[in-house]
Amino acid sequence: MATLIGYAKFSAKERNVDLQHEALNAAGAYRIWTDGTSGVAANRPQWQDCLGDLQPGNVLVVNVL
């Protein structure tokens, strides 16, 4: 079975990621990275860390609200 990796970020409208975390946990994500910035040009260090941690066979789950 594949390992699920989760990623969440704040949106411009929704400044709380609790619902995203709940959905990612319910999906079975073993680890969730979260960036606290919004906007197209925002620096997203957790996204870069998440991508760097992916291994062959992992599944990236991104929940967008």
Results as ranks from 00 to 15, higher is better:
residue 49 D to V: 09
residue 6 G to I: 01
residue 34 T to P: 00
residue 44 R to G: 06
residue 25 N to I: 08
residue 45 P to Y: 02
residue 15 R to C: 07
residue 11 S to H: 09
residue 65 L to E: 03
residue 32 I to A: 01
residue 39 G to T: 07
residue 45 P to M: 10
residue 50 C to I: 02
residue 56 P to E: 15
residue 21 H to A: 10
residue 39 G to A: 12
residue 60 L to S: 01
residue 46 Q to M: 14
residue 43 N to L: 13
residue 40 V to T: 12
residue 31 R to A: 14
residue 27 A to E: 11
residue 14 E to D: 15
residue 55 Q to E: 11
residue 65 L to N: 07
residue 45 P to A: 15
residue 58 N to Q: 10
residue 27 A to G: 00
residue 18 D to M: 07
residue 48 Q to M: 13
residue 43 N to A: 12
residue 31 R to E: 14
residue 19 L to Q: 15
residue 42 A to K: 06
residue 22 E to G: 05
residue 5 I to K: 07
residue 10 F to A: 11
residue 64 V to L: 08
residue 27 A to Q: 08
residue 8 A to R: 02
residue 21 H to K: 15
residue 16 N to Y: 04
residue 21 H to V: 11
residue 40 V to F: 07
residue 14 E to L: 07
residue 49 D to P: 03
residue 55 Q to C: 11
residue 61 V to C: 02
residue 9 K to D: 04
residue 41 A to H: 04
residue 26 A to P: 00
residue 46 Q to R: 13
residue 42 A to L: 04
residue 5 I to S: 00
residue 13 K to I: 10
residue 43 N to S: 03
residue 29 A to P: 02
residue 40 V to H: 08
residue 38 S to G: 05
residue 3 T to E: 12
residue 39 G to I: 02
residue 10 F to R: 02
residue 14 E to S: 10
residue 30 Y to E: 14
residue 63 N to L: 10
residue 3 T to L: 12
residue 4 L to D: 03
residue 58 N to L: 06
residue 10 F to D: 06
residue 29 A to K: 03
residue 61 V to M: 05
residue 53 D to E: 15
residue 62 V to I: 14
residue 44 R to T: 05
residue 3 T to P: 03
residue 22 E to Q: 13
residue 38 S to L: 09
residue 25 N to A: 15
residue 49 D to R: 14
residue 59 V to T: 08
residue 4 L to R: 05
residue 54 L to Y: 14
residue 55 Q to G: 00
residue 6 G to F: 04
residue 27 A to T: 00
residue 63 N to Q: 12
residue 51 L to P: 00
residue 53 D to N: 10
residue 8 A to G: 01
residue 53 D to I: 01
residue 12 A to D: 13
residue 56 P to I: 11
residue 40 V to N: 15
residue 25 N to L: 09
residue 38 S to H: 06
residue 56 P to W: 10
residue 24 L to P: 01
residue 35 D to S: 02
residue 36 G to I: 02
residue 39 G to C: 11
residue 30 Y to L: 11
residue 53 D to F: 03
residue 12 A to Y: 09
residue 63 N to T: 05
residue 62 V to Q: 07
residue 43 N to H: 01
residue 39 G to M: 09
residue 24 L to F: 04
residue 19 L to S: 06
residue 17 V to K: 04
residue 31 R to C: 07
residue 34 T to C: 08
residue 57 G to W: 05
residue 17 V to S: 05
residue 48 Q to G: 04
residue 46 Q to A: 11
residue 20 Q to T: 01
residue 18 D to A: 12
residue 40 V to Y: 08
residue 51 L to G: 00
residue 56 P to A: 11
residue 12 A to E: 14
residue 65 L to P: 03
residue 46 Q to F: 02
residue 18 D to K: 10
residue 24 L to K: 08
residue 25 N to S: 13
residue 11 S to P: 07
residue 18 D to Q: 13
